[in-house]
Design a protein around this nucleic acid. Sequence first.
DNA 1: GCGTCGATGGCA
DNA 2: GCCATCGACGCG
Length: 185
Amino acid sequence: MKRLGRAFFQRDAATLAHDLIGTVLVHRSSGREYRARIVEAEAYVGPKDLACHTSRGRTERTEVMFGPAGHAYVYLIYGMYDMFNIVAGTMGSGQAVLIRAAEPLDGWTVDLSGPGKLTRAFQITRKMNGLDLTGERLFLRHDPLCRPRIRKAKRIGVEYAGRWKDRLLRFYDAGSTAVTHRPDR
DNA sequence: GCGTCGATGGCA
DNA sequence: GCCATCGACGCG
């Protein structure tokens, strides 16, 4: 399986979020390889998007979001959960994709149904903020055999974002039971 | 099977 | 004071 390279990430966040569904996230840690298929992701499309952290300007926290695509943006929420994002778009555009849910592979039995659960199981923490995802530690692979049935929905937990709260910027695989807050069913 | 609520800390 | 969350609890 081929790795996702820089060019894959250098596209607008909505396109990237869509195309990340069905790809495989890989974490190499202490000689082992932990893998899971991404089934849900949200796009945060830049400073104009009131749900996007970069809409409050360039700060120490959001600095990596304004940097090159394909790097990790990891931040703490509610004092206890790390959120894993992938920086998208062109340099300085301030976009990212939040990885919300995945299905474990290789008989790895964990619950990855939610952004906080996913980072906990993958041991993704703020220490990895800014990490290059085209490197050797944490990266993604194409799976040409995977044909997800991709649907769109509203993003979760962004009720404060004015007219941006209802935008269909969440993408998920309709065939997965790991997807959170499903609007259908 | 619901809805409600507390934990817990960084950020603006 | 809020927050891109989760899990425990109380219902009946």
